[in-house]
Design a protein around this nucleic acid. Structure first.
Length: 137
DNA sequence: GCCAACGTTGGC
DNA sequence: GCCAACGTTGGC
């Protein structure tokens, strides 16, 4: 069981849309580091969804319902990109803003803070629990 | 709108 | 293999 943070620009795909869709394929990851993390995600893992851009907040939790499978891209022939499928688990009652994250000592080692551009990253169980708790307040 | 951080590309 | 130039992302 692992925990992840998935970052998305809400104007591209939002957690609200995921709630409507019930399930979606998390694709278009075109960064090797993010791709490698995606490959490690297992069915049943939980992921915090973070909205970049105007929101800048963690907005909910999703679960991985299908492990990595090919996400072919004609623009990069020969490169094996992958996608996963996720379903919503919980919408945070209160989004956990980036400023809140930065001011929470227990979250100071979150990769998001130092690597804001990385779109898929592992988080510890402790980070997951802290984010979930803050999201319920 | 700007800039910092980072990744990618291409010339050498 | 190095590094300058360039493109992209995301925060401010």
């Amino acid at each position: 069981m692992h925990y992840w943070l998935l970052k998305t620009e809400p104007s591209t795909y939002s957690f609200a849309q995921l709630l409507k869709d019930k399930k979606t394929n998390w694709n278009d990851v075109r960064n090797y580091q993010a791709r490698n993390f995606l490959k490690e995600a297992s069915r049943g893992d939980l992921a915090v969804i973070y909205h970049s851009g105007d929101d800048k907040a963690a907005v909910g939790v999703a679960k991985i319902v299908r492990e990595a499978y090919p996400d072919p891209d004609p623009e990069t022939p020969g490169v094996e990109w992958v996608q996963i499928d996720i379903s919503p688990v919980k919408l945070f009652a209160k989004p956990v803003t980036l400023s809140k994250i930065k001011s929470t000592a227990a979250l100071s080692s979150l990769m998001l803070i130092k690597q804001s551009r990385l779109s898929v990253m592992p988080i510890s169980e402790a980070h997951f629990k802290t984010l979930s708790r803050l999201g319920e307040e």
